[in-house]
Design a protein around this nucleic acid. Structure first.
Lengths: 247, 247
DNA sequence: TCGAATTTGTGCGTATGTATC
DNA sequence: GGATACATACGCACAAATTCG
């Protein structure tokens, strides 16, 4: 019994936020007010607020106060089989459907497969791969980042070896693979979530402690992986929508 | 420049964990050691460790020390169209495929639609619905929880009105709807992630601050929603795998 | 425009309790 | 039982940002 006081304060506030008694944008009591209200030291109130900030419920502005976080417009990333055969970039199509200008920056380099990537691409550790890092933007704001790996055994010497150069730049994996005679038949997306890393927080202008979803996507052609990618999606900017046909 | 010291310590440790120099199960320096190493007060070291614990990287045991969190065996939840037409429960099939005994507890009650649920089911606020809460277990350990809502306008008076009673108990939404002449043609799963709520943490024996993914699933039959559910999945126990056929 | 009050962020030192080794 | 380590809590201090009269 007898939970720590700071958890009790946090629970009180969290409950008020979840069931709407505290609405997004509302100011919560300052730490002195909380300390007085609960008859504790101000450090205890600070810990409660810090916990809820880490969980994404609160947001503080020095000098101004602490407020219930307003979810920015959450955009949707559609993940469904019938969008994949479009020409052009799936990301740009998604953003266009929501009235946003989708764009991206990328840089590619050849490297060798780490154990994890080798496992996903079903090649040997150390085999050469093309690694491409992307930053995706919506209306010039960074929205998500991803890193893609393709076995050079598949693309070396073809016009699509560099994903973002040549006639097939920016058309998506499926179109590029078709251009060199491969027919991707299946994509697997393994979805997990974790706290953002410092480097990602910088690329995305996100706060430390933010939660991101990570999509490990693998395209296969004839049973063989032809591309795999880690797509890092901040949950406060994007939700994922999978459209699944039922037999 | 000049980040706060506790963030610098946290970044140092986080980087070591992410790139494997500190492996799961490894002990990290005690807060006295960290304080000495970075020439700060031990309270500062505590803040750094607390941050990484909240992010899920570290785990402390009083008296013993602080350790890099070992991910328990992550089980996989397969989300793909071609599994949905099986007889029996999709969850049980998933667990069986991984050598686990899947089971669940549930309780149903009639209630009225909140605004959010009314919107998802495309019915009016206050319309009667059947709400069912589930706790899913693998080898008798709680693994995930979900809440399902079905419009009573669809199921009232049919043998499947109570999802977990009668001849079609435990067979999944698709099979139950077929039993009353409806043919679900599409499922939409909107995936987000957030910090766990206190009530969920209790049901799942999870720690406060743990991250969960939330799947908002909606089944449609003939364009009309026939069921919607919130499926709450702790990321340290389950990953989601979507299998997407390419055109 | 200025200055005072408020609020948050960070940091220090200390104390007590409890769990582990 | 003693040493170690973590969890929580108190009280204080100062800088920086904001608010407001």
């Amino acid at each position: 019994m007898s939970q720590p006081v700071y958890l009790r304060i946090a629970d009180d506030l969290r409950r008020q936020i979840v069931d709407g008694r505290l609405a997004p944008g509302d100011r919560v009591p300052s730490r002195h007010e909380l300390a007085r209200e609960y008859e504790v030291s101000d450090r205890v109130a600070v810990e409660a607020v810090r916990l809820l900030s880490a969980e994404g419920y609160l947001e503080s502005r020095p000098g101004a106060g602490t407020f219930v976080r307003t979810r920015p417009t959450v955009r949707r990333l559609t993940r469904s089989w019938y969008r994949e055969d479009r020409a052009g970039s799936p990301f740009a199509a998604d953003m266009e459907a929501q009235g946003r200008a989708g764009s991206w920056r990328s840089s590619s380099e050849t490297t060798t497969a780490t154990p994890a990537i080798a496992g996903r691409l079903e090649i040997a550790e150390g085999d050469p791969v093309m690694r491409t890092r992307y930053v995706y933007l919506a209306d010039d704001e960074p929205l998500m980042v991803s890193t893609s790996w393709e076995p050079l055994a598949v693309t070396r010497g073809t016009p699509v070896m560099f994903p973002e150069e040549g006639p097939h730049a920016g058309t998506g994996v499926v179109a590029r693979m078709r251009a060199i005679g491969l027919q991707p038949t299946q994509a697997t997306e393994v979805v997990t979530a974790r706290a953002i890393l410092a480097g990602e927080a910088e690329s995305l202008s996100s706060r430390i402690g933010a939660v991101v979803m990570v999509i490990q996507r693998t395209y296969r052609s004839g049973g063989r992986p032809v591309e795999t990618a880690d797509i890092v999606v901040p949950v406060d900017r994007l939700e994922l929508a999978y459209e699944i046909p039922v037999s």
